Computed example of a mutant assay.
Amino acid sequence: MPTAPETTSAATLHPKSSHPRWLRLAHWLNALAVLVMVTSGWRIYNASPLFGFSFPKSITLGGWLGGALQWHFAAMWMLVAVSLFYLIINVVSGRLSRRFFPVSPKGFFHDLGSALQGRLGHADLGQYNQVQRVAYLFVMLDITVLVISGLVLWKSVQFPLLRELLGGYDSARYVHFIAMSLMVAFIAVHLVMVALVPKTLLAMIIGHKEHV
């Protein structure tokens, strides 16, 4: 007796994108905002350096202090708006708990060891390993610190509680600089990882389909 043909599920016919349009849009807008903020921030830093060095003018944005401030504030609003958009969608949709948790020290160091030995798989780009989860959660926290410390530097009188939580205006400058430096370090590592696994860049440009 002939068996009934296998049915094809809707998920097989219509694979789901692990990088939906809203995610790719938020990624590239935030990448632009961070690039503008970092390079204009370097020009602002040069006007009153915290340490015994300045950034080469050729890699800064704004030309002069006033111009750098305008670029910095414009990118700040983009970063805040896009980051809130990204966070709200992740929380409301449940994606935050699905993609970024659970995390544990044991799982993190296991995946880190596998990555350093080139044994970490990248077949499913929609599933984050624990190194990626920790890195992306760190970026969310770092952006929060950048925004809070930036508000203190911008409107110190209007945000006295934030100023005191950061130890005063001068301390907020160091917090802001350290948070910026950590962001630049993350970007550098991120670019190295993209170079090692080029298909992740393609997926963030055109999306990546996965069957669910």
Results as ranks from 00 to 15, higher is better:
residue 128 Y to L: 09
residue 112 L to E: 13
residue 133 R to Q: 14
residue 38 V to L: 10
residue 180 M to F: 12
residue 198 P to D: 03
residue 33 A to C: 06
residue 209 K to D: 01
residue 64 W to N: 15
residue 142 D to G: 01
residue 176 H to S: 08
residue 133 R to G: 03
residue 35 L to M: 11
residue 32 L to K: 01
residue 110 H to L: 04
residue 157 V to D: 12
residue 191 L to V: 12
residue 66 G to Q: 10
residue 118 G to I: 08
residue 187 I to E: 07
residue 95 R to Q: 13
residue 93 S to R: 06
residue 56 P to G: 15
residue 125 L to G: 12
residue 93 S to C: 05
residue 111 D to E: 07
residue 182 L to I: 13
residue 131 V to I: 13
residue 124 D to C: 00
residue 165 L to F: 12
residue 1 M to G: 10
residue 79 L to K: 00
residue 96 L to F: 12
residue 111 D to V: 04
residue 128 Y to R: 07
residue 177 F to L: 04
residue 17 S to R: 08
residue 84 L to G: 04
residue 98 R to M: 02
residue 93 S to V: 05
residue 52 G to D: 12
residue 208 H to W: 03
residue 155 K to R: 15
residue 11 A to K: 15
residue 132 Q to C: 05
residue 24 R to D: 04
residue 146 L to F: 01
residue 162 L to A: 07
residue 122 H to L: 00
residue 30 N to Q: 11
residue 27 H to Y: 05
residue 115 A to D: 13
residue 12 T to M: 05
residue 156 S to F: 15
residue 21 R to G: 11
residue 132 Q to W: 07
residue 145 V to N: 04
residue 27 H to T: 01
residue 59 I to Y: 09
residue 122 H to F: 05
residue 87 L to D: 06
residue 166 L to G: 02
residue 192 V to I: 15
residue 21 R to K: 14
residue 111 D to Q: 06
residue 101 F to P: 00
residue 157 V to S: 08
residue 104 S to W: 09
residue 144 T to H: 01
residue 48 S to T: 05
residue 107 G to T: 04
residue 83 S to M: 09
residue 75 A to K: 09
residue 15 P to Q: 09
residue 79 L to I: 03
residue 20 P to A: 07
residue 202 L to D: 13
residue 145 V to A: 04
residue 192 V to S: 14
residue 138 F to L: 07
residue 173 R to T: 10
residue 69 L to I: 10
residue 199 K to T: 08
residue 166 L to N: 07
residue 189 V to C: 03
residue 32 L to F: 13
residue 147 V to S: 00
residue 56 P to A: 15
residue 119 R to F: 00
residue 180 M to D: 04
residue 192 V to L: 15
residue 56 P to N: 15
residue 159 F to I: 00
residue 126 G to N: 01
residue 204 M to I: 01
residue 141 L to G: 15
residue 130 Q to K: 14
residue 162 L to D: 01
residue 187 I to V: 15
residue 154 W to G: 02
residue 91 V to R: 02
residue 152 V to Q: 06
residue 29 L to W: 09
residue 4 A to T: 14
residue 88 I to Y: 07
residue 90 N to V: 00
residue 36 V to D: 03
residue 8 T to C: 08
residue 63 G to I: 03
residue 23 L to K: 00
residue 204 M to P: 09
residue 53 F to P: 03
residue 86 Y to D: 02
residue 173 R to A: 04
residue 108 F to G: 10
residue 70 Q to L: 13
residue 14 H to V: 06
residue 22 W to R: 06
residue 116 L to K: 04
residue 183 M to A: 12
residue 122 H to N: 10
residue 144 T to K: 02
residue 196 L to M: 14
residue 121 G to N: 10
residue 9 S to W: 08
residue 65 L to V: 13
residue 72 H to S: 00
residue 86 Y to S: 13
residue 21 R to C: 11
residue 15 P to N: 07
residue 169 Y to Q: 06
residue 149 S to Q: 06
